Simulated assay, not measured.
Amino acid sequence: MHDHSNIKEHMTVIGADGVHVGTVDHVEGERIKLTKDDSPATEDGQGAKHHYLPAGLVAGIEGNTVRLSATAQNAVDMFEEA
């Protein structure tokens, strides 16, 4: 298991394929909360929402970047909403 205490606000989150997934808002327990900035508006026209990723997907931290063990698309498929 990775030490999640090193994950800080505003870090960039990328998939194993190097594709941008989001930006860290903060860590809540075993989930990483992403900012709304990278979230598209919903189909009903409402604004963007926070999404969460399981912190267990973290493969490593490189500088200001959190690299996941899953590809960006797989990570997006695992998004959870509050």
Rank of each mutant, 00 (worst) to 15 (best):
I61T: 11
E9C: 11
G29N: 10
Y52L: 14
A55Q: 07
D44S: 13
R31L: 11
F79C: 01
D44E: 13
V21K: 08
T71I: 05
D44V: 00
I32Q: 04
T12Q: 13
Q46Y: 06
G45L: 00
K36N: 00
K8M: 10
V76Y: 06
D38K: 05
L53W: 03
A41G: 10
F79N: 06
H50T: 05
T42Q: 14
L68A: 08
S69F: 04
G15L: 09
M78K: 12
H50V: 01
G22Y: 05
D17M: 05
T23G: 02
V66R: 03
P54T: 03
D44C: 07
G18A: 08
A41M: 09
M78L: 14
E62I: 08
Q73E: 14
F79D: 01
G15T: 05
T12F: 00
K8R: 15
A82Y: 08
L68R: 02
V24Y: 01
E80N: 01
A75R: 11
P54M: 10
K8H: 14
M11P: 12
G29E: 05
Y52A: 04
E9H: 13
V21I: 13
S5P: 06
A59M: 06
G22E: 03
A75G: 12
L34D: 03
R31H: 12
L34G: 14
N64E: 15
N74G: 05
D25A: 14
L53D: 01
H4Y: 08
I61F: 02
H4M: 13
A41W: 06
K49F: 09
Q73G: 03
A70T: 12
A70E: 15
T23W: 05
H4F: 13
A72P: 09
L57Y: 12
V66T: 00
V21R: 05
N74H: 12
L68D: 05
E28D: 15
H2L: 12
A55G: 15
S5G: 02
V13H: 04
K49M: 13
G56L: 01
H10L: 12
A55D: 14
R31M: 15
N64C: 03
A75H: 04
D37W: 02
S39M: 09
A72E: 15
A16L: 10
H10N: 15
E30M: 04
A72K: 11
D17L: 09
A16E: 14
I32L: 09
R67W: 03
V66Y: 02
D77M: 11
K36P: 03
Q73Y: 01
A75Q: 11
D37P: 02
N74Y: 00
D3G: 11
V13E: 01
T23K: 08
I14A: 01
Q46K: 12
I7D: 07
G56R: 11
I14E: 15
Q46T: 15
M11Q: 13
M11Y: 08
I61G: 04
T35L: 03
N64F: 00
T23V: 15
I14H: 00
H4R: 14
I32C: 09
H20G: 02
V19F: 10
I32R: 02
G47C: 03
T71P: 04
G47Q: 08
A16M: 01
D77F: 07
I61Q: 13
H51D: 02
H4G: 05
I32E: 00
D44L: 07
I14R: 14
K33V: 15
I7K: 07
T35G: 04
A75T: 12
M1P: 12
D44P: 08
A41N: 13
R31T: 13
D37F: 07
G18W: 07
H51P: 00
H10W: 10
